[in-house]
Design a protein around this nucleic acid. Structure first.
Lengths: 231, 231
DNA sequence: GCAGCCAATATTGTCAACAAAACTGGAAGG
DNA sequence: CCTTCCAGTTTTGTTGACAATATTGGCTGC
């Protein structure tokens, strides 16, 4: 075993100390996992997390249970917590669910979009095209997230929104790899543009099917990336 | 306040005592809420639950946190836990999500159904028709649940399955009222039969749209029931 | 060398007591 | 009569210690 873990400590959130430690622990641990500081399958020992997060074991346990509910960690009785491993099959299932949920959300967004929101959508579309043309893939990825987020805001479907957000968390690693997949933006850009257009036209059915097609192609990309990686 | 709470105690699960109390507490409390022994909005005081469930406060808290993740209770810091109230709008949202998820599941079931499973579907359809003709509404409700469950088994989509199950829990009360709504079976029976037929024919698209139509009509029923109740 | 066992250790599960916060009822003042 | 404030009480938040369980590493006998 390593003599000492050199990972940075995440001390209390500033000098304020006004926040409750439970929240801090949960958010800090979630960020740490999402940033890949703990790898899938890695064991999460409560005592170590106490030091790392600067909170008591009580709050560490609460955080672990919370993240287990989000599917980010898995806890087994008397065996502790691990970062959850998401297999390719699970990733596909999760993305299938996201496909129908975001389809629902897109349809609803098309039914509720205001003129102001429509031009915001247009602007994102424009920026996306520019980013692709300029080869700024990182920027494109950010815009991608912003677009999906805006659509969900327009739809205002809290239930679907919460589930989508939870599922997204479970896939950060996979999603990240997809965004770097060569040729990916060229495929997804026109799909995004069709989604935007359908919502602008206030056509729920078109918006739903455009969104579903888009995410269906994400599923293909998932499989591709996985195949590429295991070569 | 009531001088004494006469609700039945749920003592340890038999003489075995092999099960962990955390699991027992969680399941017993979930059942109690689902059976309506605690009403929506009712406060859940930890000390009372300790007596009721025969476990320590530690385990009561764990159970409450678990059920909060399932959306059955809501806990507010320093304010305790309440049985979550599901408004009509939320119930509609939840059912919309169920609509697209069960649509996905139905499509997948149609793609994977075996001959044996197909005849099982047929049998349930037959029993449903009989139950409706005989006016056995309670039985029809049970068969309804069995049908949806079988479809989900056939699909084998663990991710969608888990979410659907969670959502169903949040709606037990509403669902129960719908099943007693007069004229409801006459509407839903032919919808169920169309779903069964589409899956039998191994036609995913038809299965998905049949399922979505069915659940869309459940949403209407939800609104009706609510309107009837507040008259 | 190795399979199985046993003690030592590491880790998680549980509890009971205490601290902090929220709620309650009633008294004081307007 | 109403509002405000202040104990007293109830309820939740947190801690540290201890118990139960799993894991590790070495030992023994084959």
């Amino acid at each position: 075993m390593p003599a000492d873990d050199r990972r940075p400590t995440i001390p209390p959130a500033g000098p304020g100390r006004t926040e409750d430690p439970a929240r801090h622990a949960r958010d800090a641990l979630r960020d740490a996992i999402l940033n890949g500081e703990y790898l899938p399958g890695e064991r999460l020992v409560e005592a170590q997390l106490c030091e790392r997060l600067g909170v008591s074991r009580f709050n560490v346990r609460a955080a672990l249970q919370d993240l287990a509910a989000d599917g980010l960690v898995k806890v087994e009785r008397n065996k502790g917590a691990h970062v959850r491993k998401v297999t390719l099959d699970e990733a596909v299932e999760i993305t299938e669910v996201r496909m129908v949920l975001e389809g629902l959300v897109a349809a609803r967004a098309a039914a509720r979009v205001t003129d102001e929101q429509a031009s915001e959508l247009d602007e994102i579309g424009l920026l996306m095209r520019r980013a692709v043309n300029a080869g700024e893939f990182r920027r494109y990825g950010d815009l991608n997230q912003r677009l999906h987020g805006l659509i969900r805001d327009i739809a205002g479907h809290r239930t679907a929104d919460g589930i989508i957000e939870t599922l997204r968390g479970q896939l950060v690693r996979h999603q990240f790899m997809i965004s770097l997949h060569p040729g990916r933006p060229a495929i997804s850009l026109p799909q995004h543009e069709r989604i935007i257009e359908a919502i602008r036209n206030r056509d729920p059915k078109a918006a739903e099917s455009a969104m579903r097609e888009h995410i269906a192609s994400v599923i293909e990309a998932l499989r591709d990336v996985d195949a590429t990686e295991l070569r």
